[in-house]
């Protein structure tokens, strides 16, 4: 490769990277704005919007609700999705494929359609604005992601290892925990992460089923944006951005460290 080619590739990659992170980076300066405006670039500097997150029950409450719901959804969807993926992997190709397609439909059906259906049922059963309601709806949306992530791990998992474990004296359960689980753990972990994010990020269904007493962060952001231009949104966004970047960095670091040892 010539020097020129290398420089061109560098410039191209830097351009793509900038394109991908620019929208995220725009919110960081806005979050420190002095006036109540979402103008970019902002004037002055203040931490008042960060303080506002803590002081306003609307913001802090919705953040806590979102984290709680997403955490429960992540666990529920991961357990159910993993079991489903394992069942599918053991089925014959034909019926297994059909069942898999059915299980994945929540991913393909437009969110609004699902939301209307869910809302209609929840109204009848007094589930609007309840924790159980959120968890059920979001788990349904998250399970397909877990099935896909775990299914991909199972596709490369050598089931003959389970036969070998049996010959060495391991029962099915022991085999699952000592052989299968450790080997498909990366798939389960990414399924867990997807499930968490699916719930944490979900707006459409949440807009339909929220109530003044229980609403998630995306609903609060949406409400805030439609009411006024409050830079608290940017402060929340910045916090989430920092937290997720940190989590991913730690994850990558652990991943490379494990591989090297």
């Amino acid at each position: 490769m010539t020097r020129l080619q290398r420089i061109l590739i560098w410039i191209f990659c830097a351009g793509v990277a900038l394109w991908l992170v620019a929208p995220t980076l725009v919110i960081v300066p806005i979050s420190f704005a002095e006036k109540k405006s979402l103008a970019f670039p902002p004037d002055g500097f203040s931490l008042q919007w960060y303080a506002n997150i803590l002081n306003s029950p609307d913001w802090s409450g919705s953040i806590v609700s979102s984290l709680k719901i997403a955490a429960i959804v992540a666990v529920v969807a991961t357990v159910i999705g993993t079991l489903a993926a394992m069942g599918l992997a053991k089925m014959k190709a034909g019926p297994g494929g059909i069942l898999r397609a059915i299980l994945i439909t929540p991913m393909i059906v437009p969110g609004v359609v699902l939301a209307i259906g869910i809302y209609a049922v929840y109204l009848d059963h007094q589930m609007v604005g309840t924790l159980v309601g959120y968890v059920l709806a979001h788990s349904m949306l998250a399970i397909p992601f877990v099935i896909i992530a775990v299914g991909a791990s199972l596709a490369v998992f050598d089931t003959r290892l389970e036969t070998a474990a049996a010959s060495l004296g391991a029962s099915r359960i022991t085999t699952f925990f000592t052989v299968t689980l450790p080997l498909i753990a990366p798939g389960i972990l990414s399924g867990l992460l997807f499930a968490f994010v699916t719930s944490f990020d979900e707006v459409i269904v949440a807009l339909f089923i929220n109530s003044p007493t229980l609403k998630t962060l995306p609903v609060q952001i949406f409400a805030s944006m439609t009411r006024d231009s409050d830079p608290t949104v940017a402060a929340v966004g910045t916090l989430i951005f920092v937290l997720t970047s940190f989590t991913i960095a730690v994850g990558l670091w652990l991943g490379t460290r494990r591989r090297r040892s």
């Binding site: 050598d158 049996a166 085999t175």
Partner: peptide, 18 residues
């Protein structure tokens, strides 16, 4: 069941736990 037979098996494809 296989896991109670106490029989050692060596497979053509090794089947070691990676």
């Amino acid at each position: 069941p296989a896991h109670k037979r106490n029989v050692g098996v060596v497979f053509q494809h090794y089947a070691l736990f990676p």
